[in-house]
């Protein structure tokens, strides 16, 4: 296990991550640093290990080797994979959020929009119905869903609305860190643009740090401060988004960027 430097004040510090599924190495020697308020895009083609990295960083999947440290608001560091399960669970429902590509994986489809948004508040101990409902309505409005849809079931919502509802459900507790896996994947291009704009606005306004997985370089350019390029489980290049995309050093990054330009 690679030693993690002490006195590091990154929000997430991962060192020496390794994980294989049988013979397939999904993560090889991956180091990640994420700073408070920073959006890091993880890009790479399908199967390069992006989702696996997100799952390991968020403690959902344990690596074969390496460690992920999270620094809490009090400045205390926690090893995400050795901390007690209840503490990790608490992180996931307060400080952290997770936005899935498929909103149905996260939403409760037989619970109203308001109930979906209010759940994290209630899980955290909110016990005043009026306050919970007011906050749910406020968040629906913030993600551009009409307040009068608050009692509607998600199954009456379009794909773009479902994704916005998932974002409201995730951000309602003001997490410091959000993990997003292809949040605009599977949506129409016009819907994607609007959603990206919304994510950018919210993340900036709330000062949320995010790890954003995408195979779409354009999404990374729009949202991310920094970028990490993955190929076959390795991070082959990392740096400020503009630098990496305008002047790619690694051959694979050059290929990725040029294939975008060809489109």
């Amino acid at each position: 296990m690679t030693a993690v430097p002490n006195g590091h004040d990154g929000l997430i510090t991962a060192r020496g991550l390794y994980l294989s599924f049988g013979a397939i190495p999904a993560l090889v020697d991956v180091d990640i640093d994420l700073w408070p308020g920073e959006v890091l895009a993880v890009v790479g083609e399908s199967g390069s290990g992006k989702t696996t990295l997100l799952n390991v960083l968020s403690g959902r999947v344990a690596p074969d080797a390496g460690a992920v440290l999270y620094t809490d608001p009090e400045g205390e560091q926690h090893d995400v994979h050795t901390m007690p399960a209840p503490a990790l669970r608490t992180l996931h429902r307060s400080d952290w959020g997770f936005v899935h590509q498929d909103p149905k994986q996260n939403l409760r489809m037989n619970v109203s929009a308001g109930g979906n948004v209010g759940e994290r508040l209630m899980a955290r101990g909110a016990r005043h119905y009026g306050t919970i409902r007011a906050e749910a309505i406020d968040w629906l409005t913030q993600v551009e869903i009409d307040a009068d849809r608050v009692d509607d079931l998600p199954r009456t919502f379009s794909g773009g609305m479902l994704q916005r509802l998932q974002i409201a459900r995730t951000l309602v507790t003001h997490p410091r860190l959000v993990f997003m896996d292809e949040p605009t994947g599977g949506l129409d291009v016009s819907v994607q643009a609007r959603l990206l704009d919304l994510i950018r606005t919210l993340v900036a306004r709330l000062g949320i740090a995010a790890v954003l997985v995408t195979h779409d370089i354009a999404v990374a350019r729009l949202l991310a401060h920094r970028i990490a390029v993955m190929q076959r489980g390795r991070v082959v290049e990392t740096g400020l988004t503009d630098q990496v995309l305008d002047d790619p050093q690694h051959a694979y990054t050059q290929l990725l960027v040029s294939s975008v330009l060809q489109v």
Binding site: A85, R89, G115, M122, A123, R127, I132, R133, D151
Partner: peptide, 19 residues
């Protein structure tokens, strides 16, 4: 139960009051 994670039960109560 293990984690005393009972937000879901309150969601049910929320849905009742909303409806």
């Amino acid at each position: 139960h293990g984690l005393a994670d009972y937000g879901l039960m309150h969601v049910k109560l929320y849905e009742d009051v909303a409806r």
